[in-house]
């Protein structure tokens, strides 16, 4: 059953890699303007779930739909054109392009197709948005790690996605950078964007997410507000091991 107002629904999705079940019969819905967190221990299938939403992988079973239309059998570029934008757990940039061109890349082919001046203006706005405007004409090799992450985010935002997928966007940042990063995602949240984010940083989860899905060994073990799920016995057991529960 599809809830009214849900932009994305994941229905009984399973992904197998040979004998390994990376995602096991997972279902959840994401409402418009909602920030949904996916958390769970390492290897629990979070990235695999994101990959299936963005179209990198096809689910072995189950379906994913966006605004009622099935997207799980579409190729990644088609899903992107329908308004799903993503960052990658390991940052992926276009090294032979300039910083500005990296962002233009997001504006040209995506959800709203821009070209020429229009695309460049959009790219400049997005660089400003993530605080990277000063580096617009620099080569990629001149960027620090957080700037690389900012650039990737700017590229995704340039395509004006309706659903934003952030896979551990805060991972690898030092404490000051982390604060900047969290603030940036807070801004996106205030703009009323629909976001699905995978994070290990609990403070970020508490302050950013409306709801969370907790995964363990591919299956959903809890769903609810961050306070509720983070105090759930099974969740604590999944994170800390059986002995502590």
């Amino acid at each position: 059953m599809r809830q009214t107002g849900s932009v994305l629904s994941v229905n009984g999705v399973t992904k197998r890699f040979g004998g390994l079940v990376a995602v096991d019969n997972l279902s959840f819905d994401v409402a418009e303007h909602e920030v949904m967190g996916i958390i769970g221990p390492n290897g629990s299938g979070k990235t695999t779930m994101m990959n299936m939403i963005s179209g990198s992988f096809k689910p072995t079973a189950g379906a994913i739909s966006m605004k009622g239309a099935r997207i799980s059998d579409l190729p990644a570029q088609e899903i992107a054109r329908r308004g799903v934008g993503r960052t990658f757990q390991l940052v992926r940039l276009l090294p032979s392009l300039s910083v500005l061109e990296n962002v233009v890349a997001g504006a040209v082919f995506g959800h709203r197709k821009r070209w020429g001046r229009d695309a460049e203006d959009q790219a400049h706005r997005m660089l400003e948005r993530v605080g990277l405007e000063a580096m617009a004409y620099a080569p990629i090799s001149a960027l620090t790690y957080i700037d690389q992450k900012r650039l990737e985010l700017a590229r995704v935002l340039a395509g004006e996605p309706e659903i934003l997928l952030l896979d551990e966007w805060l991972a690898g940042l030092n404490p000051t950078e982390m604060e900047t990063g969290i603030e940036l995602i807070h801004d996106l949240r205030r703009e009323g964007r629909t976001i699905i984010l995978v994070e290990h940083v609990m403070d970020a989860i508490r302050s950013l997410c409306d709801r969370c899905v907790v995964m363990s060994s591919g299956a959903k073990i809890a769903e609810g507000t961050p306070e509720d799920v983070l105090s759930d016995r099974e969740v604590i057991r999944a994170y800390l091991g059986d002995d502590d529960a």
Partner: peptide
């Protein structure tokens, strides 16, 4: 053209190309 720009992106990272909406 868009096509030329798309090919440069494909040459850099085909996975990114797909995810920005290019029919690679």
């Amino acid at each position: 053209s868009r096509l030329g720009f798309a090919l440069r992106i494909i040459g850099n990272d085909e996975s990114v190309a797909k995810h920005v909406g290019i029919n690679t």
